[in-house]
Design a protein around this nucleic acid. Structure first.
Lengths: 337, 337
DNA sequence: TTGTATGCGTTATCAT
DNA sequence: ATGATAACGCATACAA
């Protein structure tokens, strides 16, 4: 019976013995095969195959000081939008040999802090985080006492001077609001998501900018969450139904539509509704949703690239990378007559 | 300037020096504080605080052989259904101090094999996998040469005798097909997802069982993927439109509805449609989807429990845990007149 | 080209 | 109660 280690998988010593070589030779076969003679190389490879040996990443990390681990912190791991970003970043970074630990905070900054510490303990070399709130005072302290490379994605803590990749939220909402106003809508309601997040703030700013630019006076802002239910409830609370509703994201907009229908209004005949995201289902909902598309996957991919720069020790040129959005015209908007 | 290690964070030696004790004492303060005198304990704690020291998890893992790492392998990390399961399992296991690495295969068994190896290299102690295909010949070999604890979730490789947590797919589809038939539908189409996956097979079995039980002769089975687009395309290919369509999951059903509408049929007046999953949006789609609800989160949570048993070294009593589904009646089904 | 020996940061065993 | 030291599995500097 071959000797096995505690975790029952073969180690480099087992391979060396079976192949009748030293452990350094085995190590070389794995890390620098060309430096080993044909003869020994094949003997070692056979032994590796036979034992099902694969290097212990833990030991390797301890020795080299490199874990090739990247940590993700996002508010909610069941939200496909966040995961599409994660996928984008992974698709870029996995070709560089990284492994990923992705964690969800359930929108809690307290949990966020805990995860931050946990990931640091795992010696991640880089981190990508989409913030869970408007601020997190522990964040800066923790990060600066380590040397992880880190970049914010989609949402950032504004007081922290870290690289950030996002979309031009303000611009997107401003343009779609402009569009509604140009179509004759003069009574507007904006349904915001979590008000302290950077993206919610920016989107609201876009709305306000458009409204002021056009001298619209009949408008209202309501605060809730970035969920279907929130859009639904906020809309139900409306004392006066406006001419158009701008949802903080697609879910909110869809919730608003549902509420509007139940309240006896039809969309877009009575009221126009728009969202933000262009999530998967928005084009199939009835009526299909007019919205602002953000390049989610690309945002993640770009974030991965930036982090990669950082990991390579490069100084990055632009600290903030803001991607453009695109208005998608569909069925939930109609000219106001 | 205090001496720092390569990764720039303090180590146990730094703490020991600053506190004027041996490293063993520092280790004890961390792992078994009561065994250290009041005096030294506080000195060490001060030093830890001052240096911002936290134990190197990598070194600790190498020494103890315990990583407290759990690996997940799922077909697609952007699919909220899979992630809801993951969340269920995490919610249970994180209280036991585990950290999670979740990987997506993009439905490729080849990628699945690679990830399996990668996770093993990371010395995960447990794995939860939702299979990406119908079989993976490398799987058994790789797993058995390690001693990771592992359990299949939602989909399994049938030739592998591993613990499995899933839902009664066959029963769910059989019951909803029974329901359609009882409502007078005599011409049925079943739109299957990836035909080699265990869940697709089981669901199809349920359909066939119902059809045969009732002596229905006018039925058809079409194979595609578990996607909206697949449901759409399969439906468009239909030579003869049936009385009712059973989608392999909700997405497929929704795609079928979209196609049906475009083909000039109305749902449920002309044709009834049902799905499987009861995903988030199904209740809000127009018309709202009649479907089979599976307890996704609970499935994950249960899987976490089972894995925990395994990790504790317990022999588990039941190897397969099959959860019940529930029929959700909504608007896409109508009695056939 | 190959082997020997050292150390990465910890925990655990053994003295004291 | 405390300290010296070995060992975890690996990569690598150095020796041969």
């Amino acid at each position: 019976m071959k000797s096995k280690t505690a975790n029952n998988s073969a180690n480099i010593k087992n391979v060396a013995q079976l192949a009748g070589v030293s452990i350094s030779t085995v190590s070389r076969v794995i890390n620098n095969p060309d430096s080993v003679s044909e003869e020994l190389r094949s003997r070692v490879k056979n032994a590796i195959e036979k034992l099902g040996y694969h290097p212990n990443q833990i030991a390797r990390s301890l020795r080299t000081g490199s874990t090739k681990l990247i940590g993700f912190i996002i508010p909610d791991i069941t939200n496909p939008a966040f995961l599409m970003m994660v996928k984008g970043a992974e698709d870029f970074l996995k070709r560089k040999g990284y492994t990923f630990i992705v964690c969800g905070t359930d929108h809690s900054t307290h949990e966020e802090t805990k995860l931050l510490r946990a990931l640091l303990s795992q010696n991640v070399e880089g981190m990508i985080v989409t913030c869970s709130g408007g601020q997190n005072s522990d964040f800066s302290h923790i990060i600066h006492s380590s040397n992880v490379k880190m970049v914010f994605m989609d949402r950032r803590y504004e007081n922290l001077n870290m690289p950030y990749v996002g979309v031009d939220n303000a611009d997107g909402v401003e343009r779609i609001t402009d569009y509604l106003i140009e179509l004759g809508h003069r009574s507007l309601v904006y349904l915001s998501g979590e008000r302290n997040t950077s993206s919610a703030k920016e989107r609201l700013r876009g709305f306000m900018s458009s409204v002021q630019k056009h001298g619209i006076e009949d408008f209202q802002v309501m605060y809730g969450k970035f969920t279907f239910e929130s859009g639904y409830e906020l809309t139900k609370k409306l004392k006066k139904v406006p001419s158009a509703v701008i949802g903080g994201n697609d879910l909110v907009a869809l919730g608003a539509i549902e509420a509007l229908l139940q309240m006896g209004y039809s969309v877009p005949e009575d009221v126009s509704v728009v969202g933000f995201d262009d999530m998967f289902y928005s084009k199939y909902s009835k009526p299909s949703l007019t919205t602002v598309r953000q390049p989610i996957y690309e945002m993640g991919y770009t974030t991965g690239k930036i982090l990669w720069q950082l990991l390579c020790g490069n100084r990055i040129k632009r600290h903030n990378l803001i991607l453009k959005t695109e208005i998608v015209l569909r069925e939930t908007v109609k000219r106001r007559v």
